[in-house]
Design a binder for these strands. Sequence first.
RNA 1: GCCCUCGUAGCUCAGGGGAUAGAGCGUCGGCCUCCGGAGCCGGAUGCGCAGGUUCGAAUCCUGCCGAGGGCACCA
Length: 580
Amino acid sequence: MFDDMADPLDLLATRFADAFRAVAGGDVDPVVRPSEHADAQVNGALAIAKAMGRPPRDVANDVLERLGNVSDMCESVDVAGPGFMNVVFSADFIAEQLRTALSDNLLGVRRVGTAQNVIVDYSAPNVAKEMHVGHLRSTVIGDALVRMLEFVGNRVIRENHIGDWGTPFGMLIEHLIDLGEDRAAAEFSVGDLDGFYKEARKKFESDESFKERSRLRVVALQAGDDDTLRMWRTLVAESTKYFNRVYRQLDVLLEDADLMGESAYNELLPTVVERLRASGLLQSSDGADVMFVDGFTNRENEPLPLIIRKGDGGYNYATTDLACVIDRVGRLSADRMWYVVGAPQAQHLQMVEAAARTAGWLPGEVEMRHVAFGNVLGSDKKMLKSRSGDSVKLSSLLDEAVERAAAAVREKNPDLDSDSQNSIARMVGIGAVKYADLSTDRVKDYVFDWDRMLSFDGNTAPYLQYAHARICSIFRRAGVDRAAVGQSDLAIVAPQERALALAILQFDAAVWDALDKASPHRLCTYLYDLATAFTSFYENCPVLKSSEPTRTSRLALCDATARVLSTGLGLLGIEAPEAM
RNA sequence: GCCCUCGUAGCUCAGGGGAUAGAGCGUCGGCCUCCGGAGCCGGAUGCGCAGGUUCGAAUCCUGCCGAGGGCACCA
């Protein structure tokens, strides 16, 4: 009867498209939008009336005449105001759409037509350095995008481009030697990476002989000296062990198999240079091998080069990033490459993309997209720092989140046993931090505020989790089989039932909107709206106290809401406890 | 100097061509013996400024103002 899309607005647009074509004599966007005056409004008549030299209301009426019978879908379609068409869906249509959506575990969300290979580059901490709030955004946003991309049927390749190579490793390895490998490993195991790095840095800056040893060590590392490589691997292994602990704490999907550090591209770097040189794209400038990319200039308004090979013969990150492109397009057959990287990298990534396209390594049909994000700010509106002025350790931030959540959960539900309290506190605390990060437009900075993110009111994870838990509680009292209820017939009668049902059906549109814009906050806003619609329903439509068949129908709406909440939060990497 | 991003209520944020610009917090005034208050109803305060495009602009374009960032050998 209807195709597999759940979004009633989309279905409506499909229905109106023919009528508009007939009236306008060509393709016209029907401009279907949600409406405060009806279930939906169709605004296309206003847009074409001018060109047709006719009053918009007349055009709208013509469209309605050509629309044919839509009684299977709509209860009414009226022309209103200057030429809007207000649509009220029929209750049967809503119920049927809902039943279809709920019969599938994608809950009505459309799958991709053809699966694509999507590479998501995110997190990227540095070896022997602490993960701090700066890594939070990339990791959390990337994780949510990965989950959404997979959900709709793509093949997703996670790439954790860790900083595991470069000149700092000379000093880090020498410090490792000074400290003794066992002691260094012990420091890493308690998560004191910053201490290690800072000590190395301090010696490097104050001790000339250490500095010289470090310099020689870099040379040895690059030359592939066995002993040096072994120590380097120790640093990388201990660091990734630590990263994994933070990833488990954060509850993100990244694992060892996703590691694709800078060092992985070492052998490709000379190839990048050779291929660029062979194509005549490489130029010598101030002793460096560079590539000039159209449209980029420096302070003096001179062409800005992309440095492929430094004056000292070393490579830098532009070269590695180009090697990445070659690898991802060639070896991994990427259709899309998403870089979840801070906004300041915008120009760099634009230059890399332009260079890769010029060199012919990045075909036009392959997407390279910078998923940029802003900073995490403190209440002073400056970059979030700890009391001591350092960047905030991610792991201690997460510990604090769980502690604060535990206090909130104890207050909310003192009867829970301590095991449940602990596991719920984890879901709530981590969820709150992630949701705070995901729920605002990623390109903007956001203000980190414990009280707000852990509040049970407003657009927060605890609010959504609590809504979910409350629904689960209804089922515990109802004494019915939730799975069976989900298959029941629905009666959409009360306005709050209608609003809730329509909100559930918007899940499809919300997921796709979030994906199209690579903006998880779109999904957050939707989930919050859904929870609000449920609250209104719950206030006005007694569930357990109703008689049949209303009771079962309302239980089915409860079940549907809970499933969308839990699935939606899951797409954000946030768990939804059944009680809290 | 050039380029990029951002300026929406007292605060934190949605809304990114369609009807009267929303939410949470805060604030002021009412209400509720309700499945676990995710309580309910109402008031007050707002699209940085100025032009332009459009039937219609918070939304698109231009300029200005303000904040942040980037602009060759750190990644």
